[in-house]
Design a protein around this nucleic acid. Structure first.
Length: 291
DNA sequence: GACGAAGTTATCTAACGGAC
DNA sequence: GTCCGTTAGATAACTTCGTC
């Protein structure tokens, strides 16, 4: 990675990732003309500034800089507090796996995964139970970073429990990034807020995904599986836009003078299409379940 | 309804610096 | 070197929230 590019990223102007340095100390440093990691490396400890704190900052900045240059995920996760991981989004933007799972229910104890969709920024990869689900662990291990919506609480613990898989990646959870911006609500509500169309999938939700899987298992008709995959894929494709949007709003909120990410609405087309007849049948047959 | 992550608030602890 | 008041970061307890 080019050194000049690293300098554009928000982490470069922040010191609060160093243990013992808070917002007040960071503000003091900026008043003393220490605005960036580059200033720490080039300059001496300012007069009247505690030498021990300066030493901690110098060590922290050098370690973080090394880890960012090599994208050393384990070193970065130990250095940078979780609340500041979002500042690394531009560092990983071309290496993120956007993922979402569908299951037979909410409890990992009594339910199991039916499908997993992973969008790599150019293509969606689907993993289906009783077909290729066992290929997921090897596939996801190639990515240094993942993005989910509420995955820290739902998707990842579910996958860990069912597949025994450990995730070592940097994890950007769009749900919690939006909460920082006081934007709350489920994925579908947030997509509406940002005017993201779901192309014929508006009426579906997690529960109808369960019904689609059950119908597919019973009938073995591809149209049920393909509608479920269309729904699953739509979630991960839209995650990219939501991650970029959240990042841009966060840098504006925190008044960080770094370039925003380019917003690409629907960069790719969903490889599966929702079958209107299937959706009608699922919704019509189960209207009583929504009351 | 269970679960777990993050935010919020209150309290504790450690470091700093001035006075002696 | 020691004491003590001030400041700021760390920690704990509690609350809120969204997942299929």
């Amino acid at each position: 990675m080019e050194a000049s590019k690293i300098m554009d990223y928000p982490l470069y102007n922040s010191f609060t990732f160093v243990k013992g340095i808070g917002l007040k100390t960071e503000a003091t440093l900026k008043e003393l003309g220490i605005n960036s990691w580059n200033d720490v490396i080039k300059k001496q400890c300012p007069e009247l500034f505690p030498k021990r704190k300066w030493s901690a900052i110098w060590n922290g900045v050098n370690s973080a800089m090394d880890a960012l240059k090599t994208l050393n995920v384990s070193q970065l996760t130990s250095l940078i507090p979780k609340t500041q991981h979002w500042k690394m989004i531009p560092n990983f933007i071309d290496r993120i796996a956007y993922l979402d799972i569908e299951t037979t229910g909410l409890s990992p104890r009594y339910s199991h995964i039916t499908t997993i969709a992973v969008y790599d920024g150019s293509k969606v990869h689907d993993f289906v139970r009783s077909d290729n689900l066992d290929e997921f662990p090897k596939f996801i291990s190639k990515f240094p970073a993942i993005t989910t919506f509420y995955g820290k609480t739902f998707d990842i613990p579910f996958i860990k429990r069912e597949m025994g898989l450990e995730f070592n990646q940097i994890h950007f959870d769009v749900c919690f990034l939006l909460r920082k911006l006081k934007i709350k609500g489920g994925l579908k509500k947030i997509e509406k807020r940002f005017r993201i169309s779901r192309g014929g999938l508006e009426d579906l939700d997690g529960y109808t995904a369960v019904l689609l899987w059950n119908r597919f298992r019973k009938t073995r008709k591809r149209e049920y599986l393909e509608t479920l995959l269309a729904y699953n894929n739509e979630d991960v494709i839209n995650l990219e836009f939501l991650l970029d949007k959240s990042y841009n709003l966060l840098i504006r909120k925190e008044q960080l003078f770094t370039p925003p990410l380019e917003l690409l609405k629907k960069k790719i087309k969903n490889p599966f299409q929702a079958n209107k007849r299937v959706i009608g049948a699922i919704l019509g047959r189960n209207t009583n379940l929504y009351s």
